[in-house]
Design a protein around this nucleic acid. Sequence first.
DNA 1: CACGCCGCTGAACACGTGTTTAGTCGGTGG
DNA 2: CCACCGACTAAACACGTGTTCAGCGGCGTG
Lengths: 222, 222
Amino acid sequence: MEDRTGAADRIRDAAITRFARDGFGASVRVIAADAQVSAALVIHHYGSKDALRAACDEHVHALVRDAKTDAMRNASPAAVIAQLATVEQYADVFAYMVRSLLEGGEGAVRFVDGLLADTEQYLAAGVEAGTVRPSLDPRGRARVLVATTVGSLLLTELDAVAGRGTAPTKDPARAIVEMSHAAALPGIELYTYGLFTGSEYLDAYLAREQQDDHEHGHEEDA
Amino acid sequence: MEDRTGAADRIRDAAITRFARDGFGASVRVIAADAQVSAALVIHHYGSKDALRAACDEHVHALVRDAKTDAMRNASPAAVIAQLATVEQYADVFAYMVRSLLEGGEGAVRFVDGLLADTEQYLAAGVEAGTVRPSLDPRGRARVLVATTVGSLLLTELDAVAGRGTAPTKDPARAIVEMSHAAALPGIELYTYGLFTGSEYLDAYLAREQQDDHEHGHEEDA
DNA sequence: CACGCCGCTGAACACGTGTTTAGTCGGTGG
DNA sequence: CCACCGACTAAACACGTGTTCAGCGGCGTG
């Protein structure tokens, strides 16, 4: 039923790889060359460059969703990411997600939303199991953890730009593996003992928050 | 000694604002229009668009450095950022840094390097003062904290893209203030009590690390 | 076989880009 | 006063972009 040659799929895959490497400013002609077709065929199949990117987003999203549902029952979200990056097959997909994250597209929003939901759910399960401390703001805590993850991604990318690190800018998938390795010890340590020796900071913040609430009423809702 | 009109400075400031808002793909003509000059004058003064951006980088870097040395003795690096964003005068500069962070230029590298060094130094001071727990990997810990900060920045930007949050994509400076407010409680909580109830994760990691070391020797150096 | 469909292409088009060029205006020093 | 110099500009240039157009060629179906 599909094309015998599968040129459309080949174009999409080439676009994913190229977008991941060079950003979404990558030209249609370069993508076409990567897929060994003419630039006109890209438009012929996808209608426009934006539509091509939308197709890439959707395809990547589907792959990530499937991979996540597969691996979700085994490991933590962070481990899922590392695992996802390790698998050769998903390297391009993962790099595409990182790029999308940096340039802030709709796919990135869905990605972090999923990550956020997973993290929150996972933390809740940990709380119930007694391995994770309860939080005054579970959603906010999940956000901080996700922020740490994507922030580490960004720092790794920055290191690559600066020429430091093992990965020569080219392979974000490998970079994330190294990053996760380097950040593992201080992260676990931080998550085990915390940062401060006492609760003075937290107490002070809570006291000030309560005071602020009394001063100018409740501004927030829902 | 300088121009009476100060057009060159006006061009640079317009470029900083425009680059921050639209990314570094912003065209010279738009910047010129913002500064109410011709596109040719931009080139006349700065030689090329890349040189213009370099001038912006340098100017922003100088401003940030000055502001930091001013505020450094008062507050923590994170507070410095929030404070920096608050000040109306530095809003554009700060937005420029965020943009530079996202597109990964040399200025971003210098920025996070500075942030990293400051954080590490600040943590060391805290350790010495007894308010911060010592770490097995102080530099790694500083990295994690900086990652959390820049990750929160990215998440805020993403929220803006998704239309959520108060800031309508336009004002990253205000967005960072809101972000820092929302992340404050879970962050402090996390840094006070940690995430886990016990040290099993850390113990397991340390045990596995030691085992790995014995398996395939020491690979790392300097 | 002949027809039409469809994957596919090279050449062109319209446009936006950074940059160059030729030239105007105004102030300043000889 | 004249000549020069630098800020400044409109117009053009060269190029890269996404996209369109006309047509080629092999396949399945009438």
